[in-house]
Write a protein that binds this DNA or RNA. Sequence first.
DNA 1: GAAATCTACTAGGACGTCCAAGGGCTTGGA
DNA 2: TCCAAGCCCTTGGACGTCCTAGTAGATTTC
Lengths: 169, 169
Amino acid sequence: MSTPLPRDPIDDARRNWERHGWGDVAAPMAAITAIMRTQQILLARIEEVLKPHGLTFARYELLALLSFARGGALPMSRASALLQVHPTSVTNAVDRLEQAGLVERTPHPTDGRTTLVGLTGGGRALAERATAALNTEVFARSGFTDDDVDQLIRVLGAFRRRAGDFVDP
Amino acid sequence: MSTPLPRDPIDDARRNWERHGWGDVAAPMAAITAIMRTQQILLARIEEVLKPHGLTFARYELLALLSFARGGALPMSRASALLQVHPTSVTNAVDRLEQAGLVERTPHPTDGRTTLVGLTGGGRALAERATAALNTEVFARSGFTDDDVDQLIRVLGAFRRRAGDFVDP
DNA sequence: GAAATCTACTAGGACGTCCAAGGGCTTGGA
DNA sequence: TCCAAGCCCTTGGACGTCCTAGTAGATTTC
């Protein structure tokens, strides 16, 4: 990222909103814009750490998901649901990971429509190394205090539940 | 979005982290993953509202930025810095907005390297309509409580400052 | 049992984002 | 003066995400 700006552009936007008579929604606008920007910063950090391992975040997420699955394999559709991305995104990621020898496709034993994605030995080993890197280089130095982390988990968890992500208690 | 999951996948991930002996970073991992997912949900809502106006979020952001600029125009590099995206992303957005007659490029009066992007009349009018739509359909119904909004602005603002986004007080 | 309806996955295309490279314009020091 | 270094923007390419269609297999319905 380039040189820091002399002022917070999101705060400027908020002031512009207020100046134009939209003061009633200026605060949520600022909060949502801040989420957008924070995601961008965090994604860049994560991709930076994963790059030496030859992974992108999308591919890492799939590897990590499979590494926790019983048998190290899942139907593509299940991966799509759990990762909460479009099925074609999973097809894309699996194509590239398979190319790299990290996962392999297997026909489902009883349902001819379904394809299982499973980790190879190399895929499992790489998932371990990549997770270790993320843990020490990103999550352990997140830039959030413990209180921040608690608040984020609470606030965003409630938001996601209301948005229909999950129905758990 | 598809059917809600019976359980929170981020909470599952957190438990998996703890189970594998990474409990010390499980909470920040969960917070960061929640930010990623929340951004995805919010972006989808925003694009949904903008679609009838023929805009994407990236293009809308540029229109909104220009609508607040004195003279309704900025150097491309300035837009890149304020929007905090790569210069090529601005080139891309300007290409398409110019195609649609919403902005126009003008050579800088004194610096031959610089190109100014300015709103057309239609661009300014569309920015107004799109902002009104976002205000009523997204920001006014954000799904965050007032307290949530305050906490997010505070926590994410501090994070962004520490990340080097800006140097303001 | 056959037809209609679902479900799972894949191909092709539109967008946005970034990086690397290249060409034009300015600036500042020799 | 002039030229090397830096800045500004664009092109081309890699990725990820989504959408729309299309195919094949599974279920439901009559």
